[in-house]
C-alpha cells in the first residue's frame, strides 16, 4: 500500500468518524432544542429536570427508547419493515459528506479540506440521495400493513416528488450563476460577488419552502398528520426503531439547513474576514464557526415555523407545489438567466 493511499484512507476515516459523531450529537440536542423552543414559544418551561437546563434529557430519552419493547405487527412484511428505518436514516447522513464545512486547514504539513469528499458534481449527489429518502417513508408505510401507515407513506412520496421539482429548478439558478456543480466553487463564487440569498431571493424562498416539504416538517407534515392518520407512516413502530424515524427527521433538517447555508448564504464565507489578514488555520476555524452559526439560524427557523404555523390541507399542499412554486421557479430561472446573460452580477 503506497504512503499516499494510506494517508488518504486515514484522513477520510478520521473525517467520517468526526462528522458522524458531530451530526449524531447535533441530532440528540436538536430534540432537546425543539422541546425547549416549543415551550418558550408557548410560554411554558419545557424539560429542565434532567441535568442543568435539562441538558441530559437526550441521554435519558435514548436509554428509554433502548429499553422499550420493539414490536413487529403480526401481518407486517418483516424484512422490509426492519429495513425501512435504516433506508430513511442513511441517505440523510450520506448527503452531509459533500458539504464543505470550512476552508482547508493545515495540519501536520498537509492541506486538509473540511469536507469529506470534494467531488465534481456535489449538487447532483445531494439531489440523488435526497430522492432516496422517499423509499424509507413509503416502505415503512407499506410494510406495516396498516391503512393509516399506507396513507402516510403514499402522501409522503407524492409530496416529496412534487416539491423535488420546484427545488431542483430553483437550484439551477444557483448553478447557472456559478457555472459549476462543485459546492466549494459555489461558496467561493458567493464570496466574490455577494451571497446568492440577496439577488436570487425568489429562488431562495422557493428552495426554503421545498426544503420544509422534503423534510416532512410542519406546515407540510401531512405524512404524519396526527389528527387524520394517528401517526402516519410510523404508527406501527416502537422503541429504537421509532426513534430512528425521529432521528432521521432531525438529520434531514440538519442537512437541509447546511445546504441552505452553503447554496444561498455563502457557506463558510465571512464578509470582511479576508481583509483582517488572519493566519490560515484561524481563518478556517472562524469560517467553520460561521457555517455553524448560519446552519443554526436555519435550524431555529425550522423550530420556529413548526410551533407557529398550522398544518396545510392536502389539496392546498398540492396546489402550492404544482400551481405556485413550480411556475414561480421557472419564472425565477428566466430572470436569473437574463442576469447571467447580460452579465449584470
Amino acid at each position: 500500500m503506497s504512503q499516499e493511499l494510506t494517508r488518504v484512507l486515514i484522513e477520510s476515516g478520521v473525517k467520517i468518524a468526526l462528522f458522524f459523531v458531530i451530526v449524531l450529537t447535533l441530532i440528540a440536542y436538536l430534540t432537546l432544542a425543539e422541546r425547549r423552543v416549543s415551550a418558550w414559544i408557548q410560554d411554558r418551561r419545557g424539560p429542565n429536570r434532567v441535568g442543568p437546563f435539562g441538558l441530559l434529557q437526550p441521554v435519558a430519552d435514548g436509554i428509554k427508547f433502548l429499553f422499550k419493547e420493539a414490536i413487529t405487527p403480526l401481518n407486517a412484511y418483516r424484512p422490509v419493515y426492519l429495513l425501512a428505518p435504516a433506508l430513511i436514516f442513511v441517505p440523510a447522513l450520506v448527503t452531509f459528506s459533500v458539504i464543505p464545512v470550512g476552508p482547508p486547514v493545515r495540519l501536520f504539513g498537509y492541506d486538509i479540506p473540511l469536507q469529506i469528499a470534494d467531488v465534481d458534481n456535489g449538487v447532483l449527489i445531494i439531489l440523488a440521495f435526497a430522492s432516496m429518502g422517499v423509499y424509507g417513508v413509503a416502505l415503512a408505510g407499506w410494510s406495516s400493513n396498516n391503512k393509516y401507515s399506507l396513507m402516510g407513506g403514499i402522501r409522503s412520496s407524492s409530496q416529496m416528488i412534487s416539491y423535488e421539482l420546484a427545488m431542483g429548478i430553483s437550484l439551477v439558478g444557483v448553478l447557472m450563476a456559478t457555472g459549476s456543480l462543485r459546492l466549494n466553487d459555489i461558496v467561493q463564487q458567493q464570496a466574490q460577488r455577494g451571497w446568492n440569498m440577496f439577488w436570487q431571493l425568489p429562488g431562495f424562498i422557493i428552495f426554503l419552502t421545498a426544503a420544509f416539504a422534503e423534510t416532512n416538517r410542519l406546515p407540510f407534515d401531512l405524512p404524519e398528520a396526527e389528527s387524520e392518520l394517528v401517526a402516519g407512516y410510523h404508527t406501527e413502530y416502537s422503541g429504537m426503531r421509532f426513534s430512528m424515524f425521529y432521528m432521521a427527521e432531525y438529520a434531514n433538517m440538519i442537512t437541509a439547513s447546511a445546504l441552505l447555508a452553503t447554496l444561498y448564504c455563502g457557506g463558510y464565507h465571512v464578509p470582511g474576514l479576508a481583509r483582517l489578514g488572519l493566519s490560515g488555520n484561524v481563518a478556517a476555524l472562524l469560517g467553520a464557526a460561521a457555517f455553524g452559526v448560519k446552519m443554526g439560524a436555519f435550524l431555529f427557523l425550522y423550530l420556529w415555523v413548526r410551533w407557529t404555523l398550522p398544518r396545510f390541507r392536502y389539496d392546498q399542499l398540492m396546489n402550492l407545489g404544482w400551481k405556485v412554486l413550480l411556475p414561480a421557479s421557472l419564472l425565477h430561472l428566466l430572470w436569473v438567466s437574463l442576469i447571467v446573460l447580460k452579465g449584470w452580477v
Partner: peptide, 18 residues
C-alpha cells in the same frame, strides 16, 4: 441514481403500493 433509482422507481413503488 437520480433518474432511474430516484424518480422512475418511486413511480413503480407507488403503483404497486396502490
Amino acid at each position: 441514481v437520480i433518474v432511474y433509482a430516484g424518480a422512475i422507481m418511486v413511480l413503480f413503488l407507488f403503483v404497486i403500493m396502490l
